[in-house]
């Protein structure tokens, strides 16, 4: 079954940037096609996952305030169904990493990410999380969270405006819509870590 281009309500496909990336994913998916039943079930799952993104509140600095504005009355994240902000990582779907990550915070962020349940996504929000931003030269700032955890969407800005955060959210939705869950083509490599935790 052919996977179609992802559609987002009230925004045209052409208006998005980074369409090549989505087309790349599409080509990969279509090359390893699956039958209609699995494909349709997959579409349903992707639709539900992309429309029910519950954020994990993880704000370290300035961007967190803009994230609050995103949830507040004018911008209202609830329109996307993303207002169910969970404080427990186990129940959240994506972590919007807002603000600088320092050396002291890095192990904590990694652990929080590991505590989240699959499927989990990461938006690196703000210049600090993308690259270290204005604090790149500091002795204790992580130069981009992708050194610690895998990032799905990079969102520059210092801090990004709420509109930009919505754009990032929609990009994440598009990315989820061209993933495959049941066919299992996306995960080629085997899990490398030992699932049995150590007792120490």
């Amino acid at each position: 079954m052919e996977v179609k281009k992802p559609k987002i309500k009230s925004m045209k496909y052409e208006d998005f940037k980074d369409n090549e990336y989505i087309e790349d994913l599409l080509a990969q998916l279509n090359a390893s096609g699956v039958n209609v039943v699995v494909g349709k079930a997959d579409q349903l799952l992707n639709w539900s996952r992309s429309n029910s993104l519950w954020p994990f509140c993880f704000g370290t600095s300035c961007c967190a305030i803009e994230f609050m504005c995103l949830g507040a009355a004018r911008y209202d994240m609830a329109r996307f169904g993303a207002e169910v902000a969970r404080n427990s990582p186990r129940q959240a779907d994506y972590i919007m990493c807002q603000g600088t990550i320092t050396y002291r915070m890095a192990p904590v962020l990694k652990r929080l990410y590991e505590q989240m349940a699959e499927p989990k996504y990461v938006i690196a929000c703000g210049a600090c999380t993308v690259s270290g931003g204005p604090f790149k030269n500091s002795y204790c700032v992580v130069k981009g969270v992708d050194e610690i955890i895998p990032v799905d969407v990079y969102l520059p800005g210092c801090p990004p405006r709420p509109e930009a955060m919505f754009y990032a959210l929609m990009q994440l939705q598009r990315k989820i819509k061209v993933s495959r869950f049941l066919g299992g083509a996306n995960r080629k490599e085997k899990l490398t870590y030992d699932p049995e935790p150590c007792l120490e």
């Binding site: 539900s48 429309n51 029910s52 169904g81 186990r90 869950f181």
Partner: peptide, 12 residues
């Protein structure tokens, strides 16, 4: 959407 998502979420 919420229901389908939560049904397929990993149980830790």
């Amino acid at each position: 959407a919420d229901v389908f998502k939560i049904l397929t979420k990993e149980i830790i």
